[in-house]
């Protein structure tokens, strides 16, 4: 025994046992369906799309040069395409920011106990069940030139001319808020409910007014959740397509990236360019997500419960 003591003891367990200890066993077969789907529906099409971006059409190559990178050259050089980044940002950033910021006070008020709380919550969350198309349709009927709102405003003499609320930037912004706010509200509420209410009581007995309690206790504990909520609503708003087309100004102020990709694909039959725009959409989103996550990593992310 002493002779082998200084050598690490070799395991006497079977190979199967040793593999199982490292997490390799027959239950891994359960991953097969998911893997097949991921490969067939995501990895392959995604790689194929990336491949397409390096096969620019002859017309693109002639116009922009750059060989196999012609699509990217076109994307960055053609202001008509490139500006769609800022147009999309101009919609998605304020919409996401508004949704998150507006959710905070609403979620805080609805955290208290009062009558009609359930009803109020339902009303706020209901738009989640409406599709973007239905929302757009509703907006057109309600806020269009001949819509109820304008007819009411004119009938009451508040305005002479119908107010332009749809088929422009405002219309898309409305739509993004209507569909995005319930998501943000639900997420922020659940993050908020994770914060032990006795922390607020403790801060009160220590002499903190409501603003100090919010600023010093609630907000720091909520911030990581706000970052996550922002990312989700931003991504949702960034890929806006139906409302940009239906209640927006598709060739003007709401010429968002997804519309540009669709135009290249549907109208110009330039699949390679469409893929390039789609890929760049992802890149822009990733940059924003990375920035937010970098900020989030600086925050306290531990338990927000009572005993810490």
């Amino acid at each position: 025994m002493t002779a082998v003591a200084d050598r690490p003891a070799r395991s006497t367990a079977s190979l199967r046992h040793r593999l199982a200890e490292r997490g390799v066993d027959s239950s891994l077969w359960l991953m097969v369906p998911a893997l097949v789907f991921a490969l067939a529906l995501f990895v392959y099409p995604f790689s194929y799309g990336i491949g397409l971006t390096f096969q620019p059409s002859v017309a693109t190559q002639e116009q922009w040069g750059g060989g196999i990178l012609a699509n990217y050259v076109a994307f960055f050089r053609d202001p008509f395409v490139f500006d769609s980044i800022w147009i999309t940002m101009r919609l998605a950033l304020p919409a996401a920011l508004f949704n998150v910021l507006a959710s905070i006070p609403v979620a805080m008020v609805l955290r208290r106990r009062f009558r009609f709380k359930r009803f109020m919550t339902s009303v706020l969350v209901l738009p989640i069940t409406l599709g973007t198309v239905l929302t757009a349709q509703g907006l057109l009927i309600f806020a269009g030139r001949q819509g109820w709102l304008n007819r009411f405003l004119i009938a009451t003499g508040l305005v002479d001319q119908p107010v332009q609320l749809v088929n422009n930037y405002t219309g898309v912004m409305f739509s993004l808020i209507i569909t995005g706010f319930p998501f943000a509200f639900l997420l922020v509420s659940s993050y908020l409910s994770g914060i032990d209410p006795s922390l607020d009581s403790a801060a009160r007995t220590l002499g903190a007014g409501w603003w100090q309690r919010f600023r010093r206790i609630t907000l720091p504990l909520l911030a990581p959740g706000l970052a996550t909520t922002f990312i989700l609503t931003f991504v949702l708003a960034f890929s806006v397509f139906p409302s940009a087309r239906l209640v927006g100004d598709a060739m003007g102020s709401t010429r968002v990236m997804s519309l540009m990709a669709f135009r290249a694909f549907g109208e110009q039959n330039d699949y390679a360019m469409a893929s390039t725009i789609a890929l760049m959409m992802g890149v822009v989103e990733l940059i924003v997500v990375a920035v937010v996550l970098a900020w989030r990593s600086l925050l306290y992310k531990g338990s927000t419960g009572g005993k810490g």
Binding site: L199, S201, T205, L206, I217, L221, G306, G308
Partner: peptide, 18 residues
């Protein structure tokens, strides 16, 4: 509460975790 100047110790401690 914030102006009373009483100290309170909670069952759950209620320490600020961050």
């Amino acid at each position: 509460s914030e102006k009373r100047g009483f100290g309170m110790v909670f069952q759950s401690y209620a320490l600020f975790p961050h």
